[in-house]
Amino acid sequence: MSIYINLDKVLEDRDMKSHELAEKIGITRANLSILKTGKAKAVRFSTLEAICEVLDCQPGDILEYKAD
């Protein structure tokens, strides 16, 4: 897939751990791991909204398009 997830970078900038984010947005660590590793097939708007709200960022900061 040409869509890359920059969640690690954003988390590092915010000095936040993965499990903290998972707890705050109400998804399991396993699902957050799937999202971070790019294995996810789709992201719900509600999840994206929660991530953006917790990390105080825009969807474009997390998602990036790179042509293969």
Binding site: I27, I34, L35, A40, A42, V43, R44
Partner: peptide, 8 residues
């Protein structure tokens, strides 16, 4: 089902 499981 796989697609549903991998929808976060």
């Amino acid at each position: 089902k796989e697609e549903n499981d991998l929808t976060i």
